[in-house]
Computed example of a mutant assay.
Amino acid sequence: MTFHICTACGTQFGERLEPPPVCPICEDDRQFVPSSGQAWTDMAALSRTHDVTWRLEAGGIHSLQVSPDFAIGQRAFLIESPDGNILWDCLSLIDEASIDRIGALGGLSAIAISHPHFFTSMMEWSSALGDVPIYIHSDNGEWAQRSGGALNQWKGESVQLGRSTLIRCGGHFPGSSVMYCPWLAGGQGALFAGDTMQVTLDRKYVSFMRSYPNLIPLGPEAVRRIGEAVRPYRFEAIYGGFSGRTIEREGSRIVDRSMTRYLSAIEG
């Protein structure tokens, strides 16, 4: 029996003898099945060829990535908090070095995940770190390929995790969420955006898509709703889901001007 991992999106599935016949996340139009077809691995095989690398992004913020790149290639974040550390988003691989490092930092109080493309091996991470509670929005619950007592499906527009706030924005997925941490960026606040809003390569804007690989844009109402969801929160920094996708200053203002630019383009 094996917990198979999709090599295209990085999602870990429930225990079974043979790989699943399909990966529902890849079959959805927001993701894709590679031209070579669906392929599978598992935690043991992945650990023989890959590691988890850490980077200190700013005070109290560590990014984690699977190296070399695997599946979607996103980064997760270990966020140090006086109320208990939080893992934002997740990776397909967990290794002993990361378990030890998280323990040295004081462990985890919660795992919070923005949307289904980053669910990956969330149950494995929770179990390895002491059955840490996992928070996903209930609107995304149907996409979870593993379940367990640690999985919490929160409802509504926001929920508090200590000093942090999870905010449902919708758009990319119905339950796509961001996390606001007001004590970071020198007390001016930081927003962890996942794919809900994507930091552009010039790091001067964010943008919005239903599907990034398949280039399906979001409509104006969905984008306006994202803006309305985050407008009550003021933040200086924005941490996107991929390496280098960080905006260090004027984050709130950049979201506002990005919405104006996007809506002008799509409605013009």
Rank of each mutant, 00 (worst) to 15 (best):
S211D: 06
S158G: 05
E248D: 01
R210G: 00
Y233P: 11
L215N: 14
G170K: 05
T200P: 00
E221I: 15
Q160T: 09
Y239N: 00
G241K: 01
P232L: 07
G156F: 06
A185I: 02
Y212V: 14
C169S: 04
I247F: 03
W154H: 03
R163H: 11
A150G: 05
E228T: 15
G227M: 12
Q188T: 11
G227F: 13
R168G: 01
Q153T: 14
G175Q: 01
P220F: 12
F173D: 03
G194Q: 07
V206C: 00
L184K: 14
P217E: 12
P232A: 04
M179C: 13
V178T: 03
G187K: 10
N152I: 13
G189A: 12
F192E: 02
I238V: 12
M209W: 15
Y239M: 02
A185S: 15
L191C: 07
R224W: 11
P182K: 10
L151D: 01
R168T: 04
G156R: 07
P174V: 03
P232K: 02
E248Y: 11
G149Q: 14
V206D: 00
S211W: 07
T196E: 06
R210A: 10
Y205E: 12
T200Q: 11
P182C: 10
I247Y: 02
S164G: 04
R234Y: 06
Y205P: 00
T246D: 00
I167C: 07
W183E: 13
S207T: 15
G241Y: 00
T200W: 02
R245W: 04
L151C: 05
L201V: 07
G170Q: 01
F173N: 03
L184P: 06
V178G: 03
I216Q: 14
G170C: 01
L191F: 04
G171M: 05
G189L: 11
S164P: 02
P213T: 03
